[in-house]
């Protein structure tokens, strides 16, 4: 008998930190100083706001460097960070800083500033986790719930749980593994949710679960 999986949802309130950057050096200083919730926000905001538009959302840092500073090379290096690889926000922060430091020294970092009005504004988010009425005690019920949950719920269990709440894996894989669905857990772990739209992700997970139900 499998344990019951309780689907949760989450809502975010965006906070402004009053810190802005006009060039790469200021961005680097901000990146090093802002709270982890800000790094999380800027590496996941696109995923939430534009999930229906394109499957490969860049992080805010890459987007800003590409658009406001027109430094396509550096933007691409930051955009191609394999976010799924990181288990902790601090590791992700360290990787972002490492890329900037490898790219150039302080002089190169301050050599080009954005136009007025195009500054990078550091933000963070406060997450509110809400219960939902959806419960699953087996794979068939799990798949049925997946068809009904909101993107916020899917987002919470896949992205938020793993990187923001510091769990080792996404909530679905943890439940599959704990309930004896090892192969399904392995297949789930192979998915890179960062390179797929939320609706595409939902479809993929439903396919995987259906195949084992």
């Amino acid at each position: 008998m499998a344990s019951v999986f309780e689907f949760k949802s989450r809502l975010n309130l965006v906070e402004l930190l009053g810190v802005k950057a006009r060039d790469i050096l200021e961005l680097r200083h901000g990146l090093a100083a802002v709270p982890g919730s800000s790094i999380y926000h800027h590496t996941h905001r696109f995923l939430q706001q534009h999930h229906y538009l394109y499957p490969e959302p860049p992080n805010d840092f890459a987007f800003w460097i590409g658009h406001a500073l027109a430094m396509d090379d550096l933007a691409e290096r930051l955009a191609s960070i394999d976010t799924i690889r990181f288990r902790r926000i601090e590791e992700l922060r360290a990787r972002l800083l490492e890329i900037l430091d490898q790219w150039g020294d302080d002089d190169r970092m301050r050599a080009k500033a954005c136009n007025e009005g195009e500054e990078f504004h550091f933000m963070s988010s406060r997450t509110f986790v809400l219960p939902t009425p959806l419960r699953a005690a087996n794979l068939a019920e799990f798949a049925a719930c997946l068809r009904r949950i909101s993107f916020d719920s899917l987002y919470y269990h896949i992205f938020e749980a793993r990187l923001r709440l510091g769990r080792d894996d996404n909530d679905f894989s943890v439940w599959f593994r704990a309930n004896g669905f090892q192969e399904l857990a392995r297949e789930m772990a192979r998915l890179d949710p960062y390179t797929i739209t939320m609706e595409g992700l939902r479809r993929k997970i439903i396919q995987l679960v259906d195949a084992h139900a």
């Binding site: 809502l11 975010n12 309130l13 709270p35 919730s37 963070s124 988010s125 406060r126 997450t127 509110f128 986790v129 809400l130 219960p131 923001r164 709440l165």
Partner: peptide
Amino acid sequence: LLLFLSLFTRGDVVYL
């Protein structure tokens, strides 16, 4: 509503 709730709660993650 989230703003109002945030005035009475602490932390980056709030369980309601």
